[in-house]
Design a protein around this nucleic acid. Structure first.
Length: 467
RNA sequence: GGCGACGUGGCCAAGUGGUAAGGCAGGAGUCUGCAAAACUCUCAUCAUGGGUUCAAUUCCCAUCGUCGCCUCCA
């Protein structure tokens, strides 16, 4: 049983093999940092976090690079508007992004390079491309020449003849070919600039990813990821730049996640129709967003709606229920029932791996997790003890943990409410003994409003924080 | 105009050439003083029209619809 990954380059699922045995070199395009990150960024970051975690589960050592693009028109414009240094502005949003990633339980990348800190590599790469005749300079600008790249367009399935360059924006007539793109832009007044052989300026959008790949992972990598809106032109151009120099296949697998949308259009900074990660996390646990992503296919679009968030929250509560301990008066299952539990755990694990091996089919993997959860709850209802539940719960924790789900009950931060809630419950127990239903129901209702759910059973009352 | 993806129950969403996982919601029950949770049972013929096949939701063609990219974008 081996892992298969859908490769955008071949538009097929391919068996996954690495350049170096046991090791994965993986690069994911991070955001351009000039605004708060939105749920589209969250989706992409979650998708590749899940990929990374599963590869690690399979035993690979993953070197994971996620960059920050911190030179770009939007950043410069915004910094000028606010009269702040662009570097500091970018830093502000990088800090925010990292905080968001943490809130979503996304593991930090092995390296988080930013373009402005790899400037020597970028300039060197441009120089080599010029030497190579893959690029040319015009008055301090440097362009990549698509005509000199025989297989330009192979990732996005386009060819230069049928592409409609200039149909929507004015083409700079200094370019040799309309599709040529900037590697280096000469500085205009009021812009940050770096010295280069072509005069002061700054890198174009695509070169920094090629250079950072080269600097942090080498000439060839195993997985390159990002949103499918990056296929063209960004990733196409990355391939063109890197392969024109190395003459070797750049990334073995190109993975692209679907777009996160708001109603009928994708969420994006330029459209201004975004829900930020901060907004979301203020209202919901990070697990909800992750579960939402897991419930579908990473290559398909996801559409924002309150109803779906609500549904996901209910599903999340169901998962939490599987983690609960044995019932208060649990008598234990007979020895004969334990074998079935062990084999349920084992077959769930196998089904999970089979699903994930098929291009990270998380929706299918989740169905086995839900079923395992049901088996846990059945065992509990039948009187299993904590030790017996552990047989299945340990597998449940292993699988949900692999997907990056935390499944920890919400706690009020820094609160020591537990003792007070326990006190109220013991008072209520006496009220119930006296059949004072009015008062005991009132306590339950009022606690509910405060986010505490009481659950009565024959053998006592348990409680939990509302998700 | 070009490239690509998609259309599965009220909602979200897997999947397969031989009559369709899972979650949410709904219905019926068990438990409970009631409620909640949990458990049990229940709930679809897969956009439309053709074609291939012993057999298609799954393959092919067409139509309709939706979305992404071709400009910055995860």
């Amino acid at each position: 049983m081996s892992l298969r990954i859908y490769n955008t380059l071949s538009r097929k699922k391919e068996e996954f093999t690495t350049i170096e045995p046991g090791k994965v070199r993986m690069y994911v395009c991070g955001p351009t940092v000039y605004a708060d990150a939105h749920l589209g960024h969250a989706m992409s970051a979650l998708v590749f976090d899940i990929v990374r975690r599963y590869l690690e589960y399979k035993g690979y050592e993953v070197r994971y690079v996620m960059n920050f693009t911190d030179v770009d028109d939007n950043i410069i414009n915004k910094a000028n508007e606010l009269k702040v240094d662009p570097y500091n502005l970018a830093q502000h949003y990088i800090d925010g992004y990292k905080r968001n990633l943490e809130g979503l339980n996304i593991k930090p990348a092995t390296v988080h390079p930013r373009a402005t800190e790899d400037m020597p590599q970028i300039i060197k790469m441009i120089q080599d491309l010029i030497t190579n005749e893959s690029a040319y300079q015009v008055n301090g600008d440097v362009y990549f020449s698509v005509d000199n790249d025989a297989d330009y367009g192979k990732l996005s399935g386009r060819n230069l003849q049928t592409m409609n360059a200039g149909s929507r924006i004015q083409v700079d007539e200094r370019k040799a070919h309309p599709m040529d793109f900037a590697l280096w832009k000469s500085a205009k007044p009021g812009e940050p600039a770096w010295d280069s052989p072509w005069g002061p300026g700054r890198p174009g959008w695509h070169i920094e990813c090629s250079a950072m790949n080269m600097a942090h992972l080498g000439e060839q990598i195993d997985i390159h990821g990002g949103g499918n809106d990056l296929i063209f032109p960004h990733h196409e151009n990355e391939i063109a730049q890197t392969e024109s120099l190395t003459h070797k296949p750049f990334s073995r697998y190109w993975m692209h996640n679907g777009m996160f949308g708001l109603k009928d259009e994708k969420m994006s900074k330029s459209l201004g129709n975004m829900v930020t990660i901060d907004d979301f996390l203020a209202e919901h646990p990070g697990d909800i967003m992750r579960l939402w992503v897991l419930n579908g296919s990473y290559r398909s679009p996801l559409t924002y709606s309150e109803a779906v968030i609500e549904q996901t929250t209910q599903g999340y509560k169901r998962l939490l229920s599987a983690k609960k301990p044995a019932l208060p008066g649990a008598k234990g299952l007979p020895e004969s029932a334990l074998g079935a539990l062990a084999s349920a755990a084992e077959s769930a694990r196998n089904a999970f791996i089979e699903a994930m091996d098929d291009d990270f089919n998380t929706a299918s993997a989740m169905s086995t997790v839900y079923e395992l959860g049901k088996q846990i709850n059945q065992a509990r209802a039948d009187g299993a003890t904590d030790d017996q539940l552990k047989i299945v719960q340990s597998a449940f924790n292993e699988l949900t943990g692999t997907l990056g789900l935390q499944l920890e009950e919400e706690k009020l931060s820094g609160s020591n409410a537990d003792a007070f809630i326990d006190l109220l419950i013991s008072v209520r127990r006496e009220l119930r003994a006296e059949k004072n239903w009015a008062m005991s129901d009132k306590i339950r209702d009022e606690l509910k409003k405060l986010g505490v759910n009481l659950e009565d059973s024959k053998d006592g009352t348990s409680w939990n924080w509302d998700a």
